[in-house]
């Protein structure tokens, strides 16, 4: 009998933990309103889209295996394309996650180990970084975020770190240990993307740790989420991940996370509280519903654009009526 209080305590703890680890949906479902693309090399077609970003009126897509960027209006009408395969100035190897910031497009170039910067019209402006393991060098940049002052935050995928560089590419600081993976706070396991909130909080898609990590504007670890204890425990429950490949901040500061193996985007508050999940896997799709969400971007009106790797297309989703963005 003396174990009874202990058992009750354990059960209560387990129950509370379970509630935290299996959250319910807090919003009406998002609706898929449009898709466009399809596999090919023609304008408006894609061969493995891996990144997406939005400006005030346009959608930019990393057409990865075609080594180019394509631009559309918010209804999916083709506008223009730029970039060509190669290793030279302004040429693209394998463009990945994108960011639009300060009127420019930032492209993480996987094969060329640089961040390429273009005007929104497609004029090449500059390249930042080079291949390597030193400060300001990259071994596969997967994604980039840009602060209002122009500082860059780069997910340095194979180097297992996040680098902060100034606008000229000069190293400022890093998170993570060069070349070492880990599951504790501040450690990474192939980080794929980065996003920065208006208040300066840095959010990192910690790819194979199946979690998101957040750091304060001063650089201190703040919080993390993704499955029990956010320690590389993957799954398909709400709030859990199975390989995180992209992250974006919405206009209200909420986080949208591309959950690759679960074929969905998950939406969270800035503190990491689960709000919603949506994707082709939840729609009874007739299309290929595997590997359908690799990157995500959010327009000011709350529309969510998703790079659908498997179907070589872009999905456009809109929020339910009672909640927003």
């Amino acid at each position: 009998m003396k174990f009874r209080p202990f058992a009750i305590l354990m059960l209560t703890t387990l129950f509370i933990s379970s509630c935290a680890w299996f959250p319910s949906v807090k919003e009406p479902s998002y609706q898929l309103v449009k898709t466009w693309g399809g596999k090919g090399e023609a304008s408006g077609q894609f061969n493995e889209p891996t990144g997406v970003a939005v400006s005030k009126s346009e959608v930019f897509v990393s057409d990865s295996r075609n080594a180019r960027i394509q631009v559309f209006d918010f209804d999916g009408n083709f506008q223009r394309l730029f970039g060509e395969p190669g290793e030279g100035t302004g040429q693209l190897g394998r463009p990945m996650n994108l960011t639009v910031a300060n009127g420019e497009l930032y492209v993480a170039d996987y094969f060329n180990d640089v961040i390429q910067v273009y005007s929104l019209q497609g004029q090449f402006l500059r390249a930042i970084g080079r291949a390597g393991v030193g400060p300001g060098e990259f071994n596969v940049p997967g994604g980039v975020a840009v602060a209002p002052n122009g500082d860059l935050f780069v997910a340095d995928f194979y180097n297992q770190r996040i680098q902060q560089l100034d606008t000229n590419g000069t190293f400022i600081r890093q998170w993570g240990t060069l070349g070492e993976t880990g599951v504790w706070a501040g450690e990474f396991n192939y980080p794929t993307d980065v996003a920065i909130a208006p208040n300066g909080t840095l959010y990192i898609a910690d790819g194979y740790n199946d979690r998101v990590q957040a750091f304060s504007p001063s650089g201190e670890f703040s919080h993390k989420w993704g499955g029990p204890l956010a320690m590389n425990i993957f799954g398909s429950f709400n709030g859990w991940f199975a390989t995180v490949t992209g992250i974006s901040v919405g206009p209200k500061g909420n986080l949208y996370v591309a959950d690759f193996y679960n074929d969905r985007v998950q939406k969270f508050t800035p503190k990491g509280e689960f709000l919603n999940a949506f994707g082709l896997s939840t729609k009874g799709a007739t299309q290929n519903a595997t590997h359908t969400a690799i990157a995500v971007a959010i327009a000011d009106d709350g529309s969510v654009f998703v790079a659908d790797y498997a179907n070589h297309q872009i999905q456009k989703w809109q929020p339910g009526e009672q909640h927003g963005r």
Binding site: V140, G207, T245
Partner: peptide
Amino acid sequence: LACPFCAYGIEK
């Protein structure tokens, strides 16, 4: 071979 991020590494 978890996702394109690692598959592209082999391809590279």
